[in-house]
């Protein structure tokens, strides 16, 4: 495999009730969005989620940053 290929960190958000908002459940590291989806599904499958999303950490726009 191509070890030189850049991998990205993805933040994983999910919810298991319609009345609840998505909340952060963890991260996965993956070389593509496709694999990030698979890895997030397999890594955080302890709940019967109704929705799960992954967001590349690099896409996050900080409003207030830690010092």
């Amino acid at each position: 495999m191509n070890n030189s290929e850049a991998v990205k960190i993805y933040e994983v958000f999910a919810r298991f009730k319609y009345e609840e908002p998505l909340h952060h459940v963890g991260t996965v590291t993956a070389p593509s969005d496709e694999l990030a989806k698979v890895y997030a599904f397999n890594t955080y499958n302890e709940w019967a989620w109704i929705e799960m999303i992954v967001v590349p950490r690099e896409a996050v726009v900080h409003v207030v940053e830690t010092a």
Binding site: M1, N2, E5, S32, E34, L35, F41, N42
Partner: peptide, 20 residues
């Protein structure tokens, strides 16, 4: 469904790499 996604995504990576 997720098995296919896993296999297809990895297949594309390995098929694109001259080492594999």
């Amino acid at each position: 469904r997720f098995h296919w996604m896993h296999g297809a995504a990895w297949f594309k990576r390995l098929a694109a790499d001259d080492r594999t």
